[in-house]
Design a protein around this nucleic acid. Sequence first.
DNA 1: TATATCATGTAAAGAGTTACATGATTTT
DNA 2: AAAATCATGTAACTCTTTACATGATATA
Lengths: 182, 182
Amino acid sequence: MLKYILLGFINYRPSTGYDLKQVLDNSTGNFWHAHHSQIYTTLRRMEKDGLVASEMMEEDGRERRVYSITEAGLADLQAWQDSPLTETAPVKEDLLVRVFFSGLRDIPAILDELRLQRVLHQKELDFYQGTTMPHLINEHNPESLSSIDPLLWLSTLEFGIRYQQMYIEWLDQLIARLETKI
Amino acid sequence: MLKYILLGFINYRPSTGYDLKQVLDNSTGNFWHAHHSQIYTTLRRMEKDGLVASEMMEEDGRERRVYSITEAGLADLQAWQDSPLTETAPVKEDLLVRVFFSGLRDIPAILDELRLQRVLHQKELDFYQGTTMPHLINEHNPESLSSIDPLLWLSTLEFGIRYQQMYIEWLDQLIARLETKI
DNA sequence: TATATCATGTAAAGAGTTACATGATTTT
DNA sequence: AAAATCATGTAACTCTTTACATGATATA
């Protein structure tokens, strides 16, 4: 999947691994993330497979490896877009595993953990409700995104907002229930 | 993480890999899943590490390898419970990646994909709203779960229900928006 | 001058998926 | 008799994380 995310962004514009790490953190971080090590190695593999081509460029004395999409890469991206998902993505939520097996733990200790999670999820919600998407949309000149791109991008951002809101409501409900059990 | 899920369930009662696969599918499937191949290999590694011990048992002519938790396993489980999570779990949602990069796709094709996802998420919601948890709770005799177990288990189930409801609402919103763009 | 950011990588280990492989019992 | 379920595993591959490693430039 990371391959297609990288292809998708490189298709918007040629990019370095560093660029892509920033872009991922500030736009897809909400539903997909990757460490820089994985991004760099995946880009190299994609180049070996002929999906992208790279060129070292010097800018302000900095050496940057800029990747561009190839014809084969564009074909791969389009083939992926044309084969729709027929399954749902499985959820993996560490906290829920912990909650499930917390029957023998101290209730105040569980509450501490849940309250910390509430703070962290509120922080993520604040981040998504901040300036993330407008900047992504403004970076592209209006002509290049005549289509439904902004609608789709904002929708994925709204997913993140809904998710964090749901998560916080759920945490509040669980915290309230546990507070009556102390 | 799978290690702790397996330890957690084996701590409730000695189990086989097959048992654990069923239990995972019917209780944690909502926030954690694993293929049988991963469960079997993880159990073997855990046995090598002394966290569980296995014994072949014959039942109705079937050979079953039953795993029990060891003292070291229980200590490991408790140590994990005592070190709270200080981060949130990253979300990985394939569909959102696809939506993000659907700017050049045919809108009717996107809508088909979203409507199929709606059906699939509705199915999952129906499943979670079905009989999953009561049976898990009834399987244990009431004395063995005098604590807050049912409350915690039901809360994780409610997370799944809230998640699917949120997902469907989000899909409906996006579908409605795209329908105006045809 | 120290810290942060820019920039790119490798190595090793762990987690997870997919395919292969087998054979018994139970239900239709 | 066929299909489904019970039951256990291995092999190969891919994905992901964590740690190691380096060096330049920009900011405080």
